[in-house]
Design a protein around this nucleic acid. Structure first.
Lengths: 192, 192
DNA sequence: GGAGGCATGTAACCTGTTACATGATTGC
DNA sequence: GCAATCATGTAACAGGTTACATGCCTCC
């Protein structure tokens, strides 16, 4: 007759594996981890510093990471962490688990779906804006791809994995752009 | 010199507009709203009952919806709500606002990106599983599309909006499936 | 001297999920 | 009689964002 609200189900903290993964590529401070995430897989993952710092403390307390270097260059305050053996094992364990099924919630589509309850022109504007954003984002990724992978598809496995995730972003944006254009074409006829 | 943590920024509750939109199509109880969402735009939006019921109370308290019908068929407990004039206005206002930029966090990609830190076979398994899920989901949407829109692209605006959102799901799944197949093809060579 | 980036950290708060609690009705 | 579905609702909690607080360093 357990008290109500005693949860037994596992809710995954997704910041932890992202941090472990980032540190698996080499020691870094919180701020650096943030930049590392942003620059190497920011197109499909974001972290806020307000979540990062407490996570670093927790992982450190559990022995999955350790302080590698304090103080840094000059007198500037900076705490660099390195992943430990236990941390690598925890990461490998997480990699083995099936990804948690993620709850889709697409606000743009919700606004399109209910567009008739307001002005159709509003939905048109949102679609145009989303199309522009996607095109800009695609240009950025395209440039990035040429920079990191100038010879195209890499042979080396680790590089290939990075290339694949970048490609995912590209094909997703391509699909998004095409759909937006089609939707705009169809809806513009009705807005007039 | 305000106390720290006094938030001024707007965080949007996205359950509210979804409920208002669902009720704009006609009165319904909490349970019915959930089914309505699931069946008509569940492929891009999900709601849990634990969030729905409190939201109904809140919206009712603000006069955006009202109790339309209590008790229902037989003696079965059921509270049906209807959207009010104020509710329709609030919905229209929300439709005018630009969608909040949503934070991408793709766990599958994170596992692919870091696959080298564990066994490559694990990532392969996740990709295969994701591919199967996407194919199954696509079959469901395809069947649904034939059921709801037997003549293909509808002429009527409201129906067209529904068709467009369904199409979004379809093109997204197509892109996901293609990418998974490509990734599997490339990675399988290395796993051997 | 000021702006902006580097850097760490905490407080408050919100959203949303899961589990629990309860009970009626329907179909087998 | 029992399982499944209908139906409403609450409690506890996790996860994560934003704002605040603080201070150094670099470049103009």
């Amino acid at each position: 007759m357990g008290r109500p609200g005693k949860p037994t189900g596992v809710r995954q903290n997704r910041t932890r594996p992202a941090v472990l993964g980032a540190l698996a590529r080499g020691p870094a401070s919180g701020y650096e981890i943030r930049r590392r995430i942003e620059s190497s897989f920011g197109h499909f993952w974001q972290e806020s510093l307000g979540q990062l710092y407490p996570t670093l403390s927790a992982l450190s307390g559990e022995g999955l990471i350790r302080v590698a270097d304090e103080g840094g260059h000059g007198d500037r305050k900076r705490v660099r962490y390195a992943i430990t053996k236990a941390g690598r094992e925890a990461l490998a364990l997480w990699l083995k688990e099936a990804p948690a099924p993620h709850v889709e919630r697409n606000e743009l589509l919700l606004k399109v779906f209910f567009a008739n309850e307001g002005k159709l022109a509003d939905a048109l504007a949102h679609l145009e804006s989303s199309l522009r954003d996607a095109q800009a984002q695609r240009d950025i990724l395209l440039t990035l791809a040429k920079e990191i992978f100038p010879t195209g598809e890499p042979r080396e496995t680790e590089a290939l994995l990075g290339w694949l995730t970048l490609d995912y972003g590209l094909v997703g944006l391509r699909a998004h752009i095409d759909w937006c254009e089609g939707a705009l074409r169809r809806l513009r006829a009705r807005a007039r």
